[in-house]
Amino acid sequence: MNPLLDNFFNAQILAQYFPSILGGFWLTVEVALLTILVGVGTGLGLAIVRAMRWRPADIAITIFVDIFRTLPQLVVIVFIYFGLPYADIQLSPFAATVVALGAVLAAFATEIFWAAIQAVPTGQWDAARSLGLGFFRILFLVILPQAIRIAVPLLTNRAIAITKGTALGTAVSLPELLGRAQSAMAIAANPSPLTLAAALYLLFFLPLVVASRWLEGLGPRRH
C-alpha cells in the first residue's frame, strides 16, 4: 500500500477518530470566539479610558499593553496555567487559554483603537463641542464611528493571527483540535488524525485570511 495514503489519509482511522476531533474543532471555535470577544471588548474599553486622559489610568494601561504586546503568547499561557497556581489562582486549561490570548489581543486592540481615535481630525471634536455635545456623546456618536472604520483592517489581521494561537492551548492540555489530533495520533500510531485537524484549521481560517485581504483592499489607497 502507498505509505502516503496509508499514513496520512487512512480512511479507517479517519472515520474512527472523526467524532473526537470534531469535538476538538468546536472547542477551538469556542475559544477563538471568546478570545475575540474578550480581546476586542477590553481593547475598546481601555482605548476609551485612555481618551479621557487621566494620568494614573494612562500609566496602568501603558504597562498592561507593553507587557502583553511584548511577551510570546505561549509564555503568557504557560505562566498563567503553571505559574499562577502558586499565588492560589488556579484556572482551567480553557480559562487560562482564553485569558492569555484575550489579554494579548486586548493589548494590540487598545493600541489600534487608540491610534484610530487620534487619527480622527481634532476639528471633529471642536465642531461637536460647539454644537453643545458632552464628552461621551462626542466620543460615541462622532469619533468612534469614524475611528472604528480606520481600525477594522489592522484589527482583523491581528485578531486572526492571535486566534490561531488557540492551538497553543495544547501546551496546557486543553483538548482542542490540535490536542485531540495529537492524542489520536499517539493512540493510533498513525498521523491521519493530524491531516484531518489540518484540514479543519484550513476550513476555519482560510475564509478569514482571504476576507482580511479583501478588507484591506477597501482601505484608503496610498499611491
Binding site: F8, A198, Y201, L202
Partner: peptide, 24 residues
C-alpha cells in the same frame, strides 16, 4: 501564501516533527 497564513504555525510544526517521520 494563503495556505501558510491559514495554518497555525504550531500545527505545521507538529506535522513536520511528529508526522513526517511516518514517511521516513
Amino acid at each position: 501564501i494563503d495556505l501558510f497564513r491559514s495554518f497555525p504555525v504550531l500545527v505545521l510544526l507538529i506535522l513536520i516533527f511528529y508526522g513526517l517521520p511516518f514517511l521516513g
